[in-house]
Design a protein around this nucleic acid. Sequence first.
DNA 1: GCCCTCACG
DNA 2: ACGTACGTGAGGGCG
Length: 886
Amino acid sequence: MSNKNKLVLIDGNSVAYRAFFALRSQLERMKNKNGLHTNALYGFHNMIDSVLTKEKPTHALVAFDAGNTTFRHAFFDDYKAGRSKTPGEFSEQMPYLRDLLEGFGIKHYELENFEADDIIGTLATQVDPAEYDVVVISGDRDLTQLAKENVRVDITVKGVSELKEYTTESIQEEMGISPLQIIDMKGLAGDASDNIPGVTKIGEKTALKLLKEYGSVEGIYENIDALKKSKMKENLINEKETAFLSKKLATINTDSPIKVGIDDLAFSGPDMEKLIAFYKEMDFNSHLSKLDTTEYDAEQNNQKEEISYKVVTEITESMFSDDMALYVELIGDNYHISPIFCIGWGNDEQIYISEPEVVFASEEFKKWAKKLDAKKQVFDAKRTYVALKRQQVEMNSINFDILLASYLLNTKDNSKDLSEVATEHDYYEVSSDESVYGKGAKIGIPEDKTVTYDHVARKVKAIRILSKQLNDNLEKNEQTELFNEMELPLSIVLAEMELTGVKVNDKRLMEMKEEFAVRLKDIEQRVYELAGEEFNLNSPKQLGVILFEKMGYPVIKKTKTGYSTAVDVLEQMREQAPIVEHILDYRQIAKIQSTYIEGLLKVIDKNTGKIHTRYMQTIAQTGRLSSVEPNLQNIPIRLEEGRKIRQAFVPSHEGWKIFASDYSQIELRVLGHVSNDPLLKEAFIEGQDIHSSTAMRVFGITSPEEVSSEMRRRAKAVNFGIVYGISDYGLSQNLGISRKEAQKFIDTYFDKYPGVKTYMEDIVREAKDKGFVETLFQRRRYLPEINSRNFNLRSFAERTAINTPIQGSAADIIKIAMIKMDKKLKESNMKATMLLQVHDELIFEAPEEELEQLEALVIQVMEGAVELSVPLKVDSNSGKSWYEAK
DNA sequence: GCCCTCACG
DNA sequence: ACGTACGTGAGGGCG
């Protein structure tokens, strides 16, 4: 073993590029949770890892190219011009290479106007050969010119971890020339990859032959007359200048003005903290698990830090302060009915855990919960608020909600399990609910109460820690206002709406159930007769066999698993297959029966006769709400049969009415605003029928009377398509026309509405650059697949980039309206109550005599919720039931 | 637990 | 060439 120092010099750009292409097949698989591709980083990492193990360097440096213009470009315009454009999936990884190197504890360096190999060449040449052995690593064989007695050059062969070693001897042996003569060889033969021209018709073989005889480019030209007459000789003479230029281009600079010295390059091993952080950010879990770190072990083996808390059976005022986290543990998702079984609260000094009987008997607790000056941080404000209110505990001043904040930061980080959300934000001290309470049939509270207490205490602590962290992140994203002024207040408004519930006439539903049961039996019989046998009409599989095998109708569409029997397919069979009419009838009624009549009857609260849906505030990726158990946002309306379901939704007081207000064309208005398209805006400002207006433009008509209903129908479909991120295929499917015709509609549309076209191009570009899109109120949606090479994934992401700001801004607007509406109703002491939200409409119940006032208020608040460059418009209706509020 | 179908905006 | 319109939730069948 020599006691010489060892310096490893790595050509960063070249190796990273090699790594990228070596793992190109893994490109789409290797992404971190934010959608960043990681294949080059991964390959680079592995290369460094194996080099460190093998070489055990005392000094190391990774050199990078700086910018595009090097001194080589200064005298040769086309230098490297032939290179294909660097893929975006590669460039996006480069900045993170620095993080990786800092984790490894390896210096990196770049120098304006010089390439990595110049930095490497300079260092390799300048170190004292008596003191340093040097290993150069690159994917570029040019660097073999640097080989000498104390310098070995390793070039990647396959992938990045397999290297071929070049020494003076091995080069001599393999090529018959010295390392320095490689420059001469490039001068003659050129290098296609760097666009170094070389001399016409001279390749590597010829070049070597010439060099063996004459030693160098200079030597050849000194003896040029000695060459026998040939085409080659002619080329050499004609391209003398090119030959010397090429040689110059291929020569690595060994005297670059670098500002690092060997002493700066001392290598003393990785910075574990940084390396772990890097692994986590990149989701390099296999590397993480190889590391023996306490933090990682804690995460992996569930060996968490000790946590201290006090279990209390008596509650005193001293247990509360004005800035605390609170966690209410329920079993089950439905907080309207789930029992509370443990409560924890605390600050950074002390955490308290108690049982519900103790807590709800405590006036001190209620006083604190209600106290305006006492700020509370929670996980899921609405859930907490409702659960406590059911126990007559009023909550005020929730100032942070981990779940809501996490969802705003990244709509995907929205797990109902606190531990999962915490993990997303690098906090690992909470176990999953599943690991504590079990799942499925085995769900339950652990025998040992301390297990629950411990779990809840950890949640309280996590809320404290994450509140600060997530608040900072919101700040960075400029989402503080979205959080404080929109989502957090809305959660309380929604809580009250849920608690209020909506009255349902169960008698009416039961009547309908009887009626439909008879009809279903009837239709069933008819289908069986036509089919010639009985089968399960609810099974698409069995139905497919009957229609397409037994009865032999032609197959129109297939699904992954068999024949499609969806409506659009059945509708196409109508003419030739009388049976499908009955099947369609059956489907329609069976849906109403099972989902709506039976489904709704199941969830009516027996005590109040009301339905209490839950609005999910952190599910939809666009910022919309969703509604569950039951979903009150998809009650039938389009077909009369189903619409009758709405007759069962009635006011909760005698003499009251249902009042409904909906935004007219809110998404197209938002589009008008964000696209700033003159014609689209004009249509709204002038109060035109938007679909007719579009029809006039697209069909080139000048007067509204000439717009036929068919034209309007088509224009409407185009308008929808625009909002969805139109494609010729989608539009053709929707309108039942050819793709060509659909494309023509789209072209004409963009011709008439150039602002819309520009908006779409701009938003997609922005999404590709930033990786996310935003609504008018900074709601953010990441689109990791926007740069995918997979056509489907990329196209989907592009349509989403177009749609999300529109759908999401509309969601923002109605959320603002809801908060304002709630406030106004309270301020004006009206009895009217907001009951439901269905994306672009709000449903209230109100005493008959308040209706007029309510309508005025709704118009004022909803239309004035935000100021856009186009007006917002609201239509309102009222009636004895939701059905009649149309 | 996944697939298909279908209800809504 | 690729094969989809955007966003949801629920019920029934089936393995």
